[in-house]
Design a protein around this nucleic acid. Structure first.
Lengths: 157, 157
DNA sequence: TAATATTAGTCACTATTGATACTAACTGGT
DNA sequence: ACCAGTTAGTATCAATAGTGACTAATATTA
């Protein structure tokens, strides 16, 4: 099957259409998660992702955060400025490249992370509660395969 | 497991965290799809969803579009205005409720839909190409179950 | 049948996002 | 050492999305 085929008269039912279902589900899940970090901790999604990334990676540059959290560099730049102003992270010059600022969570930033994580993990657990271990593995595998495939598609144009 | 439990010291790895994976995948898939309706047909995502919804449902009110396409009513209002200005849909008063405007694709709107659908379906097919029929069914079922679960979670707060 | 509440859709305002371009710092080839 | 090319991060401006108030129409209920 080519990407430019001419399957005239084809019909698309929005609710049976995978990309739509995926985006709708992601929006919903995203909204539920945001209720924690936004309403309870006054963090935006980019801010929360930066905190999570720094916990994952340790002190790294903004560019590494971008890659790890799939966010635009401008988005990260803004969120970092805000987190720094609130004392949740600090920045210092990288030893051998002064363009590069290394980011690091402050103890306050780490404390917020430790408060958020159990709440967020409880939501994830609730979502997966009705699945068997095999189903969870399958889900992860299928999403992974779709992601790989979507990356290919992105390259193709 | 409660949603307010105190699993202190828990760790969250962003890339193993289902909500993050879902959102990242949805963003990617969304971006690929947008290349078709945005770049080739100059439609925004809300506009495209309205066209798809009207094709699914036939002539309906804006409110029904909102529900069917999971979009905010303001988003739909704006996109409808734009589509009407471009002659892709028309509006007329509902017979028994004059608050209500019924929306309907014009022949031009239908023509655009018919051009987009095969292209979009080809992308979806590419994404699913490496899956067996069983895997596709499983994927749909798992996403459906997750959606139901996320709706519950949304209610709980 | 008034009085009240609800609903559809839009307006106006604000906040967020995204694209482009810029500055400063580094790299590599000659 | 010098110049072109690249990279990190930020500024700026335009487009987009989200919120609450608002208008008009309908529904509800006393």
């Amino acid at each position: 099957m080519t990407l430019e085929h001419d399957n005239q008269g084809a019909v698309l039912t929005l609710n049976d259409f995978l990309p739509y279902r995926l985006v709708a589900l992601a929006d919903l899940v995203s909204k539920v998660a945001a209720r924690i970090y936004a309403e309870r901790f006054e963090l935006t999604r980019p801010e929360w992702r930066i905190i999570a990334s720094l916990s994952d990676l340790g002190p790294v540059s903004a560019t590494e955060i971008c890659a790890h959290s799939t966010q635009d560099k401008m988005t990260v730049s803004r969120a970092v400025a805000s987190l720094e102003a609130r004392g949740l992270l600090r920045r210092y010059d990288a030893p051998h490249d002064r363009r590069n600022k290394i980011l690091e969570l402050t103890p306050q930033g780490q404390a917020i992370y430790r408060k958020i994580v159990p709440l967020i993990l409880a939501r994830e657990a609730f979502l997966l509660e009705s699945f068997t271990p095999e189903e969870r593995t399958t889900l992860a595998r299928l999403l992974e395969a779709l992601t790989a495939r979507a990356r290919e598609l992105e390259q193709l144009g």
